[in-house]
């Protein structure tokens, strides 16, 4: 029995799906640690999340330590 499977790869042979998945992890992680001011939790808790800034407070020390702008 023969089975053929097609996976998109870049010209370097790296699967495009892997690049897309890792790029999404990169962007999400960077936003969570470096830039969130309540945006993510506001999707569930609304305006209150911008006041609580839970993720900002949790990642606060790393935000400073890794060199991201903070207040």
């Amino acid at each position: 029995m023969s089975q053929s499977r097609q996976i998109s790869v870049s010209k370097n042979g790296v699967p495009v799906i892997a690049i897309v998945a890792l790029a999404m992890i990169f962007a999400t992680g960077l936003f969570v640690v470096g830039f969130d001011q309540g945006h993510i939790f506001s999707l569930v808790y609304g305006e209150e999340a911008f006041h609580d800034i839970y993720i900002h407070e949790l990642t606060h020390d790393m935000r400073h330590a890794a060199g991201f702008p903070c207040h």
Partner: peptide, 11 residues
């Protein structure tokens, strides 16, 4: 946050 940032930059 170290682990999250680590995975992010590592990606």
């Amino acid at each position: 946050a170290g682990v999250i940032l680590g995975v992010s930059i590592g990606s």
